[in-house]
Amino acid sequence: TFELKGKVGKVVKIAEDHYLVESEGDKWIAYSDEKLSLGDRVMVVDVDGLKLKVKRIP
């Protein structure tokens, strides 16, 4: 299986209740415990079905 946990991506869209993150050339629906901005670099900390939980990284 394709393992996304630990992968790095970038926030490419902000929606009302989720983010769109591009990682490894694909776009994924993501959510975070912190507020993210367009262009933020993020790391995948968990995968919930087809949704990614991400956190901001420097």
Rank of each mutant, 00 (worst) to 15 (best):
M43S: 06
E16D: 07
S37H: 09
E22S: 06
Y31L: 13
K27H: 09
G25A: 04
E24N: 03
S32Q: 02
W28C: 03
S23T: 14
K51F: 14
I14Y: 09
D17F: 11
W28E: 01
G6D: 06
S37N: 08
D48G: 03
V21N: 01
W28N: 02
V8I: 13
I57S: 08
V45P: 01
R56T: 11
K13I: 09
V8E: 14
V8M: 06
P58M: 04
V44Y: 03
Y19A: 07
S23V: 15
V54P: 00
D26R: 05
I14W: 10
K7W: 04
K10W: 10
G9P: 01
V45C: 04
S32C: 12
T1A: 15
D46Y: 03
K13G: 10
K35N: 07
V45D: 10
A30N: 00
G39T: 06
L20F: 10
L36C: 10
Y31W: 12
D17I: 11
A15R: 10
W28R: 03
M43I: 14
L4F: 03
G49P: 04
V11P: 00
D26S: 12
D48K: 04
K10L: 11
V12Q: 05
D33R: 08
V54T: 03
I14D: 10
V8Y: 03
I57F: 08
S37F: 11
L50E: 08
E16C: 12
V54G: 01
K10N: 08
R56C: 12
P58H: 07
L36F: 05
R41S: 14
S37E: 10
D33C: 13
G39Q: 12
V45N: 04
V45M: 12
K51L: 13
L4H: 07
I29L: 11
L36N: 01
P58Y: 05
A30Y: 00
D40A: 07
A30E: 00
K5Y: 15
V12S: 07
V8Q: 05
K53Y: 12
S23R: 02
M43Y: 04
R41P: 12
Y19M: 13
R41T: 13
D17M: 10
A30I: 02
R41K: 05
V45G: 03
E16K: 10
I57T: 07
K35D: 09
K35I: 09
D26A: 13
A30S: 14
S23C: 15
D48A: 05
A30V: 13
E24G: 03
L38P: 08
H18T: 07
K35A: 10
E24V: 03
E3G: 01
V11H: 00
L50N: 09
K53V: 03
L50Q: 12
D40N: 08
K13L: 11
G49T: 06
V11E: 00
Y19E: 01
V54N: 00
H18K: 11
Y19P: 00
W28I: 05
K53E: 14
D17G: 08
G9H: 01
V42C: 12
G25M: 05
H18G: 12
L36D: 00
R56H: 09
D46V: 03
V21Q: 01
E34L: 04
G39P: 01
A15Q: 09
E3D: 04
K7L: 11
R56N: 06
G49L: 11
D17E: 09
A30H: 00
E22D: 04
K27V: 11
W28L: 08
K27Q: 06
L36S: 01
E22R: 05
V12G: 05
T1Y: 15
F2T: 15
M43L: 14
K7S: 14
K7Y: 04
L4N: 15
E3V: 01
K27S: 09
D46I: 03
V42T: 04
I14L: 10
K27D: 12
V21G: 01
S37Y: 12
L4W: 05
D26P: 03
L52I: 10
R56L: 14
L36I: 06
K53T: 12
L38S: 09
D17A: 10
D26G: 09
D48E: 08
L38F: 11
E16Q: 10
W28V: 03
K10Y: 11
E16Y: 12
L52C: 05
D33T: 10
R56S: 08
K51R: 11
V12M: 07
Y19C: 13
V54Q: 00
L38M: 08
W28S: 02
K55T: 14
H18Q: 09
E22G: 04
M43W: 04
K10V: 08
V11C: 12
K51V: 14
K7F: 04
S37R: 09
D26F: 14
V21F: 15
D33N: 08
L20K: 06
W28G: 02
K5W: 15
K7T: 13
L20D: 07
V47E: 04
L38H: 08
E34C: 11
I29H: 13
D48R: 04
D40I: 06
R41N: 13
V44E: 02
D40V: 09
D40F: 04
I14S: 07
L50V: 08
E22Y: 11
D26T: 08
A15L: 11
V11Q: 00
V42I: 13
Y19Q: 02
K55V: 14
I29K: 10
L36H: 03
D33M: 11
I29C: 13
G25D: 05
Y31P: 00
D33E: 08
K51E: 12
G49H: 11
S37G: 08
L4T: 15
W28Q: 02
P58V: 05
I14R: 07
Y19G: 01
L36E: 00
E3P: 15
E22L: 10
I57Q: 07
D26K: 08
L50F: 12
R41L: 13
K35M: 07
D40R: 02
S37T: 10
D46G: 03
V11T: 05
K51A: 14
E3S: 00
G6Y: 01
K53P: 00
E16S: 13
L36Q: 03
L52F: 02
K27N: 11
Y31Q: 14
W28D: 01
V47P: 02
K55P: 00
E34W: 04
E24C: 12
V12I: 11
V44G: 02
I57L: 09
G49C: 10
K10S: 10
